[in-house]
Design a protein around this nucleic acid. Sequence first.
RNA 1: GCCCUGGUAGUAUAGUUCGGUCUAGUAUAAGCGGCUGUCGCCCGCUCGACCCGGGUUCAAAUCCCGGCCAGGGCGCCA
Length: 439
Amino acid sequence: MKTDSLDDWRKTTSTSDVTSESDGKEVTLFGWIKEIRDLGAVKFLILQDREGTIQLTIVKNRAEEKVLRKTDLIQTQYCVAVKGTVKKTSMTKRGFEVIPREIKILGVAQHPLPLDVTGKTSALLDTRLNARVLDLCHEENRALWSVQSKALEALRQFLTDRGFIEVYTPRIISTATEGGAALFSIDYFDQEAYLAQSPQLYKEQLTLCFEKVFEIGPFFRAEASHTRRHLSEFISIDIEQAFVKSSDVMKLLEEIMHFTCTTVKENCRKELEILKHEVEVPKLPLKRLTYSEVLEELKTEGNSVPWGEDIPTPAYRTLGKLHPYFYFVTDWPTESKPFYIAPKDDQPEVSEGFDLMWRWMELASGGTRVHAKSVLMHRLKEQGLNPESFRHHLQVFDYGVPPHAGWATGLERMVMMLTGKRNIREVVLFPRDRSRLTP
RNA sequence: GCCCUGGUAGUAUAGUUCGGUCUAGUAUAAGCGGCUGUCGCCCGCUCGACCCGGGUUCAAAUCCCGGCCAGGGCGCCA
């Protein structure tokens, strides 16, 4: 079908701008037809844009011929433009409707569609992800990304207000890895290169010149994880600050969580209602448990973990039941933390690293960093890494690296916390995992 | 990578226990017709499916083996 030209038509009004006060007003609306109810002599079209929906009413013996011809062609999910008059009425739920004077068909949809756009029949996540943009039209998803956008705005505002500057470190890196997660290798002309798993080393280096930095951006982990909280590509929110230690950045972290929760709770009432989720603003200070205290608690619950070992997922689930909100876990064994986490001066087997937990899920992790080159070299070797492959990083430690600390949190996990979603794929536009590379 | 469960029209499901009236049921979407006010409109008709490959059997959606995919859990990891 040949579609109509946009010409000089421009949107004057969003569906949400139409109120009973606009009675009699001429409007130009753009959107998509989500439902058609043809009662014979009268036809109702439900037009949706990103703000919501409005009913178009066509009374057949009163409508103009050209309007009738267009409406006969329209199918669900067609993209249309409407010039018409707002009419106050008691016969719609919102109290008004729009009587079209002229309609343009701007985009057509091919039926059958992979999803039910009316939302009457729900689809499984896998089906939804395969037709993601169509799925994103649903009110609940639009609410979800409003929450994410508001959360990002809050995070940026909080950090810039406190003098942090936003930076971008490379996504394409050379061999130096921090250990831990596997890297994706890429073709980089005639050199070996990888996708960055975190901005860790760069953000630490930048404390030498900028003192307080943050970065929000995608990072990549080549782990064959199959869980509902891991992705191959995720958005990390990273901060690093000079002249402070872990207790300072923990305070910053709990304040930013408090601020973000408060902002979302106050500014996204409608969205949270749509999502049927309540955001509980954390009471500060958050609980601080040491790793050893956590092991004691687990032992009491019949879930013993030997000191020095990582805490397995089932044990975290137990902890989540004991502490069903935010809590810090501090004083981790040095051997279980990455090489850049500083050991305590008076007790080197214990580190100044911490995790911020939300129920059973790790939400953030950070700590005081090592800033003495000799200690860093020693820690690298202890972790079985080759100092030679960190040559460029280590060199910076000859330029006067300040004492510093920082943390990183995953945006997707924060949004899960803010929206009540249980699978991380729900809160990513186009998720990438072990087996999903499309769309 | 491992374990458990599953894969049936565009979508979501029933049927699989114990192979046979399953010519595969239902809802929704889609198509056609009807209807003056619907709002999950309604009514009638129509279209449309057993993941792929192999095996057992007179007979497989149903049982067995392999593969792929999905959901959950574990591990890895954050």
